[in-house]
Design a protein around this nucleic acid. Sequence first.
DNA 1: TTGTACGCGTTATCAG
DNA 2: CTGATAACGCGTACAA
Lengths: 346, 346
Amino acid sequence: MARLAGVSQTTVSLVLGGNKQGIVIQEATRARVLEAARTLGYVPDPAARRLAAARNNLLGVFSFTATFPTAVEHSYYRFLVGVEQEAAARGYDLVLFTGSSSGGAGAGAPGALDRVRLADGCLLLGRHVPTEPLRRLVADGFPLVSIGRREEPEGLAWVGADYATASAEVVGHLAGLGHRGVLLVREDDDAPASADRQRGFVEGLAAAGLPAPDGTVVRTARPAAEIDAAWVRARYAEGVTAFVAEETDTGDAWRALTSAVAGAGLRVPDEVSLALLGSPSADLSGQPEPTGFDIPRAELGATAVRLLTDLLADPLAEGERPSAGLVSCGFRPGVTVAPPPRRAAP
Amino acid sequence: MARLAGVSQTTVSLVLGGNKQGIVIQEATRARVLEAARTLGYVPDPAARRLAAARNNLLGVFSFTATFPTAVEHSYYRFLVGVEQEAAARGYDLVLFTGSSSGGAGAGAPGALDRVRLADGCLLLGRHVPTEPLRRLVADGFPLVSIGRREEPEGLAWVGADYATASAEVVGHLAGLGHRGVLLVREDDDAPASADRQRGFVEGLAAAGLPAPDGTVVRTARPAAEIDAAWVRARYAEGVTAFVAEETDTGDAWRALTSAVAGAGLRVPDEVSLALLGSPSADLSGQPEPTGFDIPRAELGATAVRLLTDLLADPLAEGERPSAGLVSCGFRPGVTVAPPPRRAAP
DNA sequence: TTGTACGCGTTATCAG
DNA sequence: CTGATAACGCGTACAA
């Protein structure tokens, strides 16, 4: 105990610790304590101080898929740069819960989510989330912010990208260029991210006065298998000149689409236009830049941290609705879109 | 308190904690506790459990530059994938100490490093490290493993890439192709990573029987300014046909080199060969793949975690030297090296 | 096998 | 302004 050093004891806390209570201490005493602490090599134990203070300055990050996947370059890295920056700026450290990563205390394990209680609050990452465990956390008033819109557990705060508006904008762009046959390939799940894109897509179609016959929105669980050259040729024959894919965790939809179009012998963008609702995976970096929009990931991460720390500063009153916010996406011109080719009416 | 849940109280510790003492508890009781803990979503407080002389299953990661920098794509991400995987496999969660990132509890702040004491052990990342605070930690026997060779605090465990051997190999490759004028551009600091590369480079030269006149190794703090077209032309006129740059945090040296060579109107690899001692930054991904070697970052991260957890399992005896290990780098053929052009003797 | 009591290092409260 | 004292939440000998 450094207290034995100088002469005081509680004072040590006051001079070494933040001294939040605005108590003033004599400069002499203060110096004496500092001096003693230095010569003794005394360091307040972070564990102890956190125990006493009832908060650890720790922000959790829980992903429902590996945070740093080997295969998919794009992963959550982009979010993390914003998260780290903002957390640092606000004096918080980060806890990465090795969620559903390979092995470990997988997210599948019951109670895995409960580990987040060890932090002061937690950020949620990933499309598909086990709702039940989450609900409990929310009900207990544990500070949580989801990165990505989330409807399920009522009362969960979130920040999300405005996919709908951005998607509509992309469709508008295509329509403006003269496309009339536009089609969306999306994942076969019910993630809000997918739903929002579809909604925006459909609204964009409507706004442009374009038809949306059956089959305009294609849901597929295995794009690689279902989206092939023959399929593309058939759609093209029906008058589809622009194919739009949503960005997914794996980038599968876009990859399938591009290779199918190539396989069909159609040139992009001269014969067909392609657009991607989101950013391309890094492993596609050698290829032509897709037209579409960019998700402001870092900004989303930072915004989420801001929301969470605000929540920490003054918790929600009973029944109070948490805030949520959309961050808008920027349109990415890219090079995969051009006016449709002239050809005989189908 | 979860203890109020079932009926027991200390028992909770026994069933939830490791139960190191081989004490046996009735399966019924055990189940009851587990059940209660789950319904309550109870999680032992890490700070408290650490304070009570146990461990909290937390591994720290402390970087001396932003862990997820905005500018430099390559950053520490690669290490983290290995770290996360291995940590998950061993049942540890990760604490990212928001080191010297912009603002925050910057690494500069005194005592910033002491925060790591919250975790059971810590990984160190980054080239330049404040030695003094580190020394204290090491002296206190706090389990630490540096990713990247580190000489400074005696007794610090580390894992590093074998830059020397890999660098020598690159030089050997160049020499084998017929290059006789080979030059190294390196950062102007004293990081072991730089020193190792230089040593390997020089040894490679010697092994190939190549001369190493003054100016063979260029140290520069501002590559962008000092490595320009005129400089390249001058060196070329002196008979230098191969330029080697080390990989740095920012990728500056390589970037400066390539643009200077381009500016000098020299074709790569027909007229001059270029080699990079390390991996290219991701923001260079559109460009031709540099000849050089790859740093097995993920593997390094995983190895570091392994070392650290071993250290946790049985701590070093007094005065015992910590282990350290080199992981070898793989040669990357790339496309920026070719035999030197034939030309009149200088 | 299970419950009691103490201590880990700090902070916060309250008298001096 | 400074010095006691009570938590903080959990591990663990020790006793029941």
